[in-house]
Nucleic acid binder design. Structure first.
Ligand code: SF4
Ligand code: SF4
Lengths: 145, 145
DNA sequence: GATATCAAAGACTCATGTTGTCCTTGATTA
DNA sequence: TAATCAAGGACAACATGAGTCTTTGATATC
């Protein structure tokens, strides 16, 4: 019962993408270097994020990734749901499920967490990181046209 | 990122134990039968619950398990923490952890879930199950002396 | 049009954790 | 002493996560 590392990578990548100027892109190569992990693995995660509509990718020489939503609308939950999936933490396989109290309590509690995560936005983290940009991750992005 | 089956088993077992009359015990054999699972596996879970102080076990012929706390004080969180462990869902291995915003957001959200789970008590589920005791699990307990 | 640069995707391996079994040990009651 | 209970270690089976390698396909630049 833990968040996967992929979620961690996804969050950091998204935060970094939010610090980039509008219309500039950055490749998976650079993104992977910053976090010291394999480009191919990160690529799979980014593909997920792209399919989830959070980022978009352009192939080719000056290609790369950039966010594809208004920067202030991307919540933690958006990222987590995309990477981890959006099924419930607790689910019972039994079929007499009619108004099961246990499942209900568990799901309601989980919803509290999700509600909170849906109200925390990555842009705030990005701003915070930019302020104390001392030891934060850095990379070179492609200039936007 | 899911609750383990062990948590499910633990919750159901605890709920059932709460329906038993004071000072009566029931063996892992019967408990396992009700839930259609192996006694030895359930035994490990129950041992965890025992070490966590939620239940206590007495060996020997008329032995078995019974709750070892006031029945109305056992929360969902008590059980979950004992089975799943109480570490955080999100944890970053980096050491520049000084006031990390990401981890903070994630942990705070998790805390909301935990707070809720700590305010939901198993005894209420047990009462609810007793009311509509139609299709609920049943077993024979040892009479209390 | 050839080439370099990018993402996407499938197949695969490796690590880890969950789930479960088997067998032994040890305590308690009858 | 024998039957009945839990505790625990060792192990196997399985699922999932984590990561690598390689191929394919799209795009821009020259
Ligand atoms: S009571 Fe609820 S959690 Fe338990 S077996 Fe039935 S549906 Fe599943
Ligand atoms: S910013 Fe926070 S979550 Fe990210 S690497 Fe640093 S400590 Fe970990």
């Amino acid at each position: 019962m833990k968040y996967s590392k992929a979620t961690n990578y996804a969050l950091h990548t998204m935060v970094y993408l939010l610090t980039l100027p509008r219309n500039s892109t950055i490749g998976v190569q650079s993104l992977a270097e910053m976090q010291n992990l394999s480009p191919t693995y990160l690529s799979k995660i980014l593909t997920k994020l792209a399919k989830g509509g959070l980022i978009e990718s352009t192939p080719g020489v000056k290609g790369g990734y950039k966010v594809s939503k208004p920067k202030d609308e991307i919540s933690f939950l958006d990222v987590i749901k995309t990477v981890e999936g959006d099924s419930n933490l607790f689910h019972c396989s039994m079929d007499h499920n009619e108004g099961c109290m246990i499942e209900r309590v568990m799901t309601e509690a989980e919803q509290n967490m999700k509600d909170d995560l849906d109200n925390k936005f990555l842009i705030d983290i990005a701003h915070d990181m930019e302020e104390k940009n001392s030891n934060t991750i850095k990379g070179k992005a492609n200039e936007g046209n």
